[in-house]
Amino acid sequence: MTNRHVLALAALLPFLAGCSGEPSEADMRRLVEAHTRRALERQGQGGFRAFDVFRKQGCVAAKSKSGGKPGQYDCYYAATFVPQPGQPPLTVNGKGRFGKSETGDKGLVFEDLGAQPR
């Protein structure tokens, strides 16, 4: 295999990874940020806009015995944000279930399965 072939295959890897059905890091971030924003607003702690850092740590297909359905993934992530100006950053390790919306649209839905500050 020539260097050109290797470079061409390497360029295709991000597209092939996206075909697995697993949510992308950007999709996960968007859904977890929206969930966090709503949760903080319900508690009267508005002002959250976005995480300072968000990192997808990995996903596994959700098992049916834990409530998972085909096409759903249990994913782990780390999210860091500054809760209040002047306060130290807070990093949370979280787990969520991501899957296709049951309403027929092509969007993803997020179910919070827990987060732990570290």
Rank of each mutant, 00 (worst) to 15 (best):
R118S: 02
S101P: 02
A61H: 04
Q116S: 08
G96W: 01
A26M: 12
P83R: 06
D74M: 11
H5E: 13
A10V: 12
S20E: 02
A39I: 04
Q72E: 15
G58R: 12
R38Q: 13
G96Y: 03
E41Y: 00
H35I: 00
T103F: 08
G94P: 03
Y73W: 15
G107F: 08
G114Y: 04
L9M: 12
K95T: 15
E33V: 12
D105G: 08
E111Q: 13
S24Q: 03
L16R: 03
G96K: 01
A34R: 14
G47T: 02
V109T: 14
L108T: 09
D27W: 05
K65A: 01
K63V: 07
R55H: 08
C19M: 15
A79Y: 09
L90F: 05
V60D: 15
L16I: 10
A10P: 11
A34D: 05
L13V: 15
S64N: 01
F98L: 14
L113G: 03
C75T: 11
S20C: 06
D52Q: 12
R55I: 06
G68N: 05
Q87I: 00
S66A: 04
L12A: 14
G21I: 04
Q84N: 10
L16M: 12
S64E: 13
L90M: 13
Q45S: 05
G99W: 10
L31W: 03
G99F: 09
E102D: 15
S64R: 03
L16W: 08
P70V: 01
H35Y: 10
L12S: 12
G104A: 13
G99V: 07
V32N: 00
N3T: 09
C75R: 12
K100P: 10
E111N: 07
A50K: 07
Q72M: 08
D105E: 11
E41V: 07
L7A: 15
A79E: 08
Q57W: 07
Y77P: 13
F98C: 09
G94D: 09
K95N: 14
L40H: 04
R118A: 05
Q72T: 12
C59A: 06
E102V: 13
L16T: 12
R30G: 02
F15N: 06
A26F: 11
P88T: 14
L13W: 02
R29G: 00
K65Q: 09
V6F: 13
E33Y: 00
P85T: 02
A62N: 02
T91K: 05
M1H: 04
P88K: 15
V109A: 04
T36D: 03
D105W: 04
P117C: 05
S66Y: 06
L40R: 12
V32G: 00
Q72W: 14
V60P: 00
Y73F: 15
L7T: 09
E111A: 12
A34C: 03
R118F: 05
T2G: 12
C59Q: 02
D112F: 14
V53D: 15
R118L: 11
G94K: 09
G67H: 01
E41A: 07
K100M: 11
G96A: 13
P83K: 06
C19K: 07
S101N: 14
G68M: 06
S24T: 15
P14M: 01
P23H: 01
